[in-house]
Amino acid sequence: MDWISLILIPAIKSLILVIVLLTGFAYATWFERKLIGRFQQRIGPNRAWTFGLGHPIADALKMIFKEEIVPSYVDKILFVMAPGLAIVPALLIFAVVPVGPNITLFGREIPLVVADVNIGLLWVLAVAGVGVYGIILGGWASNNKYSLLGALRTSAQMLSYELPMGVLLIAILLTTALGTADGAGTLSLVQIVNMELPWYIRIWILLAFPLYFITMLAETSRKPFDFPETENELVAGFQTEYGSIKFALFYMTEYLHILGASGVAVSVFFGGWRGPFVEQAPILGVFYFAAKLIAMVFLFIWVSASVPRPRYDQLLRFCWTFLFPVSLVYLAITAAIVILL
């Protein structure tokens, strides 16, 4: 390993990834506004440039040039720190998601993933867990009842839904034992995507997707589970006191969580970058991945346009008395299948 492949290539890859993610975030907001509009038989943003493609840029400029207000009663250090704490984990999740197969560039074999770590999925869960801190600290530092309530709800919601999510992921990790040569399974997302699994196992994995998707909605606190910011009860929850670019960072975090969760779900459930003719033209993999990612984001937006928000106790009861037991049953059945095969 020379220094180019050790430092330079990962640095360039992370830079590209961050730029793509931040642009992707901006256009995810555009995609959502446009789609929600169509779902409500409106046209959606269409004033700035063709199809309103200039709106995200205008939004960004507006956010940057707005007055930065730090209320006098907040805990200033935590208040300023919280948005950063929220957004860094959201960006980090994507580091282990493979966006394509290995491609050859300038005579070098370059894997299209920033870090192929062998604890891939654990990394995702750990980083997603850290992401809660930004929101909780933001709500706490705001020194405001609504913000604190929003933050507390977030922590309870995320802790509860991490359980079924983790259990479902464990079940899927068990099936990787069938795909690896030594039968030990793997945590690496790169290997999970590369794996050849029998078709009935693929279908069995897909059966878990609806449950996993519900936990994804709760983990990213998207509608219908947007309890951290329940507008009609908590004003804007943890981000009530935030303005200008700090608010934008929280907003960014929300969309990056969607992109990250979608990327992980695409890799685990839908074969990541795989698709027809990828062997002949590896770069096609990136487009397959992007298409699957966009389809997943579409699903997020579709659900948010269709389903009303439940009550908070309903959310937790659903998790503990339905989702968690069902995922445990799923885990048990999967374990039996893996042992018997």
Partner: peptide, 18 residues
């Protein structure tokens, strides 16, 4: 939920009224 999502999908396919 599937029913409600079908309703919104029909609205999406019907196109905007604006």
């Amino acid at each position: 939920i599937a029913k409600s999502m079908a309703v919104t999908l029909r609205a999406l396919l019907a196109g905007p009224l604006t």
